[in-house]
């Protein structure tokens, strides 16, 4: 049976603005991916644990509250503690350009700011998977 790209879409932190997360979840599904949606108020621990059990290829997180500098790197740290290095981690939301280099250095492979077309995110995922399809 064909291999499917599996993506965990999560909203870490406390902000409740999930329009973007839901739109991207639908767009990824329409691009043929399997999307595990975990909803609001997720801790980094919950996100990492779910990503392991669901064996996803990609973790996609959205934050609009400004807590990205704290929460995104924490997810990377937890993945590293579990020696998981083959999951592509991306983030989106209201994220100032000057924060992006720091997030990338922490291991967030792609950062998508407001106005990014969903097609761009889809292409990025397809071209940057860390595991063979």
């Amino acid at each position: 049976m064909e291999r499917k790209i599996r993506v965990l879409v999560a909203k870490p932190g406390l902000d409740g603005h999930d329009r973007g997360a839901k739109v991207i979840a639908r767009a990824l599904r329409d691009a043929g991916m399997e999307v595990v949606y975990t909803g609001l108020r997720q801790t980094p621990e919950q996100i990492v644990s779910a990503s392991i059990q669901e064996d996803v290829d990609v973790i996609a997180m959205s934050i609009l509250s400004g807590a990205h500098n704290h929460l995104f790197p924490r997810v990377m740290q937890l993945l590293a503690e579990k020696s998981i290095d083959d999951v592509l981690v991306i983030g989106g939301g209201v994220i100032p350009d000057e924060d992006i280099p720091g997030l990338k250095a922490a291991g967030i492979a792609g950062v998508f700011t407001p106005g990014t077309p969903t097609t761009e995110t889809i292409e990025f995922i397809k071209n940057n998977l860390k595991r063979g399809i």
Binding site: G13, L14, R41, T43, G66, A67
Partner: peptide
């Protein structure tokens, strides 16, 4: 901020990274 809006004190575990942000 979001912890206040959701009824958590600033030192609650879920408040981490959110205090004073929005």
């Amino acid at each position: 901020d979001l912890p206040t809006q959701i009824g958590y004190d600033s030192d609650h575990a879920l408040s981490q990274g959110e205090v004073g942000k929005v």
